[in-house]
Amino acid sequence: MEFLGFLARRLAWSLLVLVGLSVVIFVIARVVPGDPARMALGPRASAEQVTELQEKLGLNLPLYQQYGRFIGGLAQGELGQSLLTERSVNLDIRTTFPATLELVMATVIIAFLFGVPLGVAAARWKDSWPDNLVRAFAIVAAVMPTFFIALLLQVLAGYVLQILPTTGRLPTGTEFEADITGLLIVDGLLKGQLHVVFEAMRHLLLPALALSLATMGQMARITRASMIDVSRQDYIEAARAFGVPDRVRLFKYQLRPAFVPPLTIMGLEFASLIGGAFVVELIFSWPGMAAYGIRAITQKDLNAIMGVVMVSGLFFVLVNLLIDVLVGLVDPRIRIRGRRA
């Protein structure tokens, strides 16, 4: 029961954040540029053309009515039409988002899979060489620009060693329709086409690795700190006194509560992860939402920009909601208290 109340409160806050987000995005796209129609059509368009587009888009209405239309559309999941391609932004995002989702999910999995064990190892051998190595890695990974890592990996693994593909999601000419979830690996498995799954993973490896290094370092750092923190608790001391084997103590009693900070940080990291995906997708010609967003930005396609930023924000909010629930499941104390420590 308490958990449901906690969930309801979190949901309400998330909704509020989304409304706030929509106002910010509306202001950026509709109020800041002055005349979006003139911007979309370029300086050579005639006054009639501009007026026509203004009327079509409702730009001649007062601002609060325009915002009403915008949020009304959003509530129905409608993001409007692209000013340039005349296609629905929804459709564009629906076709490009799964690629980004697959990339980001692979990134998170890699970051956790390596980051948490690295952190545990660093805490276990605190102040000796594994610890120093992990800490050095965490710092360098954090300050290495994502685009730089991506370029280096691409050149090293793709051109010099020639062991991994460096562009796209599948080899050109592969006939495969990812029409179930849009995630190639999942759809390949569902359709039993294992060669597609294999190729998709090969293509995914470099971009996901490039995007994950910074987060991996961060995970290792936080896990280390929180493992050390937990190890000073009385109940761990008690377990030690009772002669509970090291491995059991470490993984069963210490890791579980120590897992909460990395989880919460992961949620906040998501914003920079989505930003990083913009760069990585461009370098690896990954046909995702970020690549679409960059195109929209360079062509000043306002509706598409609003759509991409809104979906990024929505993604962030949903992930953090999910993480709060997960944290509640991992650590019952938080569930009962009803909010994050």
């Binding site: 954040v17 950026i28 914003a271 913009f278 760069v279 967003g293």
Partner: peptide, 23 residues
Amino acid sequence: MRLTDIALALPPLIMALAVAAVL
């Protein structure tokens, strides 16, 4: 604090890109 939550949900790089595009 709710304002900070909203700003936190926007990736700074994307925000900067959007502003760079609009201006």
